[in-house]
Amino acid sequence: MAIDIKADLFSYDEKKVENEFIELSKLETFIKENPQASIEELTNLHPEIDKMTNLSMASLYNNTEIMAPGKISSFWFTFMFSAVGTYSLYGAVAGPISVGVVYFSTHKDRNETKKALWGCLTGTLIGAGIKLVVVKLM
């Protein structure tokens, strides 16, 4: 059923919005007044700040694709090297090296390095698992 357009549709609870951001507004004022404030000072004012310090504006948008070398996602980049490297054994160091590559190519982005580490771990386990099965079968 079609909504009838009326002025009330454009109303909102002003108090609710104010209350929602009361802590962030204090933080914003503090940063504006103290642009050189240290992270410790900011943490004292807003203990939750560590949760936002690694958050990019890009998180507001969809479909972020971090560019690990070859424009492959950081997880799959290290997964690939770790799995193949561990399977061939001689290349077991390929995983840690690929994590290093992601770390530097994304300019030390913590989130991407974390994804790369998970990719390395998963790839290593899967590569080693396949190797074990193949050795046992032979």
């Binding site: 890009a58 479909n63 972020t64 694709e65």
Partner: peptide, 16 residues
Amino acid sequence: TIYQIRNEHLIATSGT
């Protein structure tokens, strides 16, 4: 397209 740049390097793209 959103381009994310740090230290003068393009590190990611997103769609909007």
